[in-house]
Design a binder for these strands. Structure first.
Lengths: 224, 224
DNA sequence: TACATCATGTAATCGGTTACATGATTAT
DNA sequence: ATAATCATGTAACCGATTACATGATGTA
């Protein structure tokens, strides 16, 4: 159900066609949600049937583009969703991390390649997200200008800051992944291609509570 | 296809039944991948048909538990996946972040509630992931002991460190989300319930990319 | 006895992906 | 003329979620 609200949210500041939404979603202002055209077009039709958005095709337009706008009802529904209490946190499902968890049996060269790909991936995203955040601060982002157009003068700084913080979260995530990968690569450099390691980057934590990692049973005696 | 390898990876150190995998996946050693029983059981059967795992039901077991072990073929397939070049980074699809992006029209009380839920969510995960990491360092995690059992003495430190780093990534992500939310809450405190804001946490970035070849623009005065 | 938990499944459904179809416009 | 891009879709499929079914074991 989140694609629905991602589309609605996008359209709430800037009317757009399905094609434009697809483009922007792929790499643009909607860098938080990716979707394929085959999912976007039917969803827009459903949204229109619900009366949350309204599409218009200009009869003179030979490309029969359908440009959608959010209705008053749609705006209310978006605000209800945004303000809702149900957490939208998705289930933990991090395939790359799982891969890394089981990479210890691979050659160090394989581990290094994995980390370099990880780096490349997040460096690209960092650049993209940072550009968005900076454009919002600088006031050069088009959608942000649309948003501020119908906004009381005294609230403009507030709205801009909230939008910045949204992208700031993504920026920090990318930065974290990059420093994580770099740290491991630096550690692997010290190890010099051998798994016979003495240099340990982790020290045993001081236990403050006898809280174990797996079961609540302490290791006093194994069952059976 | 990742559930397949998550299951395979888990079973590669510790034989387990479908039920146990479901439990561990929900909140345990497999805190990186969540799955429902209705997905786990059929996948295990498929894996068995492929010959990657082998299940045994003890005839004396009235609960007819089916305990699976990874075969030699399964271990090879797992290593092939782990070492694979295709990036398993999922499409960007962060519903909570999208929500925050469109929260600027809501009351500040609503924004605060949203951030408090965000905090609660990641504080819980942080505790869970930190416990795992610490248990691995301390050598008290059961699955880690299984992994180290058939491991040459001189490689134990290496393997332990890799596993730690895997959970360290999750720990840092949770820490980032927590400090992100706290920062925004602190900013909202300064604002004191009004959207008429003067306190700006972001300053306009120095432009480096669009170098127009003239004088450097010093601070643009407040975004529009 | 009744209820919670252990343990394994099936069926319907939903969201997301891949593949394919169709036609118009713009650039080479 | 050809290719690339604009623009909107349909169909088949796959992975994940919800709901439901079944029976055994352990505990109040």
């Amino acid at each position: 159900m989140s694609l629905r609200y991602a589309l609605l949210g996008f359209l709430s500041t800037t009317p757009a066609s399905g094609y434009m939404l697809g483009r922007k979603f792929a790499s643009g202002a909607g860098a938080m949600w990716e979707a394929f055209p085959s999912q976007i077009y039917p969803e827009l039709r459903r949204l229109e049937k619900l009366g949350w958005i309204e599409g218009k095709t200009s009869p003179r337009d030979k490309l029969r583009r359908r440009v959608y706008q959010v209705t008053a009802l749609g705006k209310r529904e978006l605000q209800n969703w945004v303000a809702g209490d149900e957490s939208a946190h998705p289930a933990e499902r991090d395939a790359e991390r799982v891969r890394f968890l089981f990479i210890d049996r691979s050659d160090i060269a394989v581990i290094r390649r994995h980390l370099h790909r990880h780096l490349a991936h997040y460096e690209q995203r960092l650049e993209q997200w940072r550009a968005h955040r900076d454009a919002i601060v600088a006031g050069t982002q088009e959608r942000m200008r649309d948003r501020l157009a119908d906004c009381p003068e005294e609230e403009k700084a507030f709205v801009t800051t909230i939008k910045c913080f949204a992208f700031e979260g993504l920026v920090r995530h990318a930065e974290m992944e990059i420093s994580w990968a770099k740290e491991i690569l630096a550690w692997l450099d010290k190890v010099k291609g051998k798994k016979n390691v003495k240099v340990l980057p982790f020290k045993a934590p001081r236990q403050k509570a006898p809280r174990t990692g797996g079961a609540q049973k302490s290791r006093s005696k194994k069952a059976r």
